[in-house]
Design a binder for these strands. Structure first.
Lengths: 399, 399
DNA sequence: ATGAAAGCGCTAACAG
DNA sequence: CTGTTAGCGCTTTCAT
């Protein structure tokens, strides 16, 4: 009952509180955890004692004893250039954080550049049971954390590159192919079946195509592709191939495609410069970019070369980032609502954790109920391995 | 020596390793911590055993036993809109992360919107000894974490709003006043003593003023101020007052100043609209903005109203964010090198921690040696309570 | 309602 | 070089 450790200058422990309150530390623990069976009078004394000694439970000791950290870790794997550049990452962090907080957990974000050391550290941490659940946003095809999550049956939700193919994991993504298809169709035909135009719309995209034989507004689309190992890049390129194959069967194979090594504006500028030299760009031309940053680079270069957008050539983006509205003309693009991404991911891990608790599993059964994209409340929906988020076509000025 | 706990499906512990290697768990612990006194043969067996059982030490147990988490926590306190908008935050995160990793620690980022719940959580965590050291980037004048750090004598480095005034804390900041002064001087007089123009220059700013009586290029500067509770905002405004007071003693008091409630482009646009209605803007006008985002908003609105920048009116920013080069004309602005901020902050906490270790203090003596801004190596400089980072005037097209 | 005691998984003297 | 023994601070039966 006496304070076992009263060394010198140490942070107060539960023993100190117990001693001051004149009870055993077990009772203090009960009080702290809201357990029943603490007399009102005792509770008062404990409460006061806690204030007196300025006590806060040790996170480490608590985690060790109850085998729970009350932490959800968001892990971001990308090259540092991309981390700084990618306007989506911050949105994921913020929205995941909001959800995790709302559900009563604490979120922490771990970032890793691609260098081995940082990676190994994070793997050790995860493997060491650092958090109760993990959100992984990765740019890598075969992220080494995946096998780890699996071996340890950890609660994890993935988002990034095509993880909907990896059976054991719950993942969140957007339908890049469908979204890009709708966008390109609009750029070429001017037709759309969704009520685009305002990013605030929450309508689900509708990929019904217009009549393929209708007169096209633009007959020479070019594509600036992002790094193919990045989330969505291959799917978006495939959509370009597919739509142009359908709408322009004769020329589809010879359409210009530039494979950018990064998402920087300069890469797009280089592509545009090359094309503009090849021959003059005309009103037949449309430059479809794999994301907004590239589109900005393309437009800037076009301006430099004396072209008008969209007067001369049309340009489209993808992401609806802040750059989309900063530039003149404002970008026609796709909003993939990254601000929902983290929110949904967080909801999914927490469901996993709660379900596992309910079933007495310490190790996760991933077939937890999943709330759908637009739905912020977790109505008990059908089990699902991959959640597809809705996108919106945003029609502005550039195309 | 036998595995005390071999329950059922539990993650392997040090006991499992010891059992398989045929030694005591103490020896395994020694091996794990690189302590001397483990026979080579034993080491081999342990190594193998670790692989066999797929063992990783428990983060919680380790922290509890050695009173060290090997974690540095970067805590960001801001409204969620600002978190998403502020282009600086990501740079701080990335650069702090790089430094922390390089020094052998693991960094985790905690984000808190201004709502009470999230805050309280973080305070509990910190108070519970969640990390070995803390980096705080806060937008608040009186962040509640500060007293906490102090009571517990924790290792912490602050950055944000004017914390150089709070004696016990080590803080990192830029000299907003000096930087803004130099910028405004340049906008008005066209003179500068630093070799501006290229953001890559690492020259220290030089605030020597030109002859105050020289003919001014612009005689009617206006100022768009950011939220005054945000980092640097008051200092920048003060610089505007000071420089205009000196250069334009007669009109200084009647110069237009707009107090924006946020950093959004729309706020700046509103200000510009009002001024343009008041009377026609002329080549005498210069609009000094508290940051790049506001400058972008101002320029966009000026364009909308048919003005040319800088042909008609000059506009300047602050931050040298990516928006500075995306817009046409590209912004004349100040680079505060946010990518150094996190790096330096991280270096400072780690120094604190190492020094405390060396002196056998568990609680920090903050008079650790601090490396200066441009200097990436920690040459034993003089003790310092606040580190001022160098800034660069970046002269482009807008002013 | 409350106290005693046994862990949680690991580190760190202290013996041998 | 290695095993034994105490903790680290808290949770959680099990008695009382």
């Amino acid at each position: 009952m006496s304070a076992k450790r009263n060394d010198f200058n140490h942070r107060p422990t539960i023993y100190d509180v117990a001693e001051r309150a004149g009870t055993s530390y077990a009772t203090v623990s009960r009080y702290l955890n809201g357990r029943s069976g603490v007399a009102a009078s005792t509770a008062k004394r404990i409460e006061q004692a806690i204030k007196d000694v300025d006590y806060t439970p040790s996170a480490a000791a608590r985690s060790l004893a109850q085998q729970r950290t009350h932490l959800i870790a968001l892990i971001i794997h990308a090259r540092s250039e991309d981390i700084i550049t990618d306007p989506n990452i911050m949105q994921i962090i913020a929205s995941a954080n909001a959800r995790v907080t709302r559900e009563g957990w604490q979120m922490v974000t771990l970032m890793s550049e691609n260098d081995g050391e940082s990676r190994a550290n994070i793997e050790r941490l995860v493997s060491g049971g650092f958090a109760d659940g993990y959100l992984l946003y990765t740019m890598e095809e075969d992220d080494p954390l995946l096998p780890l999550f699996e071996r340890r049956s950890m609660h994890a939700v993935i988002s990034g590159t095509g993880y909907h193919q990896q059976p054991p994991f719950v993942s969140v993504d957007v339908d890049n192919a469908a979204a890009m298809s709708e966008l390109i169709r609009y750029v070429l035909t001017g037709e759309t079946h969704s009520t685009g135009g305002d990013a605030d719309d929450a309508d689900t995209t509708d990929t019904t195509a217009g009549d393929a034989t209708a007169a096209l507004r633009r007959t020479r689309p070019a594509y600036i592709c992002g790094p193919l190992n990045m989330p969505g890049a291959p799917e978006r390129l495939a959509a370009f191939r597919a739509v142009t194959g359908e709408l322009l069967p004769d020329s589809a194979d010879s359409l210009p495609v530039h494979y950018a090594a990064d998402w920087n504006t300069t890469s797009a500028a280089a592509a545009v410069r090359a094309w503009a030299e090849d021959g003059t760009l005309t009103t037949r031309d449309a430059i479809i970019c794999a994301n907004d940053t590239l589109a900005v680079g393309a437009i800037e270069e076009l301006h430099r070369l004396g072209y008008d957008v969209p007067g001369d050539v049309a340009v489209s983006g993808f992401d609806n980032s802040s750059a989309a509205t900063s530039i003149t003309p404002q970008l026609t693009t796709v909003d993939q609502h990254m601000e929902r991404r983290g929110w949904v991911m967080a909801g999914l891990v927490i469901d996993q954790i709660r379900d596992a608790d309910k079933n007495g599993d310490r190790n996760g059964d991933r077939n937890a109920s999943a709330d759908d994209a637009g739905n912020t409340d977790d109505a008990g929906a059908a089990p699902s391995k991959t959640v597809m988020l809705a996108t919106d076509l945003v029609i502005r000025e550039s195309a």
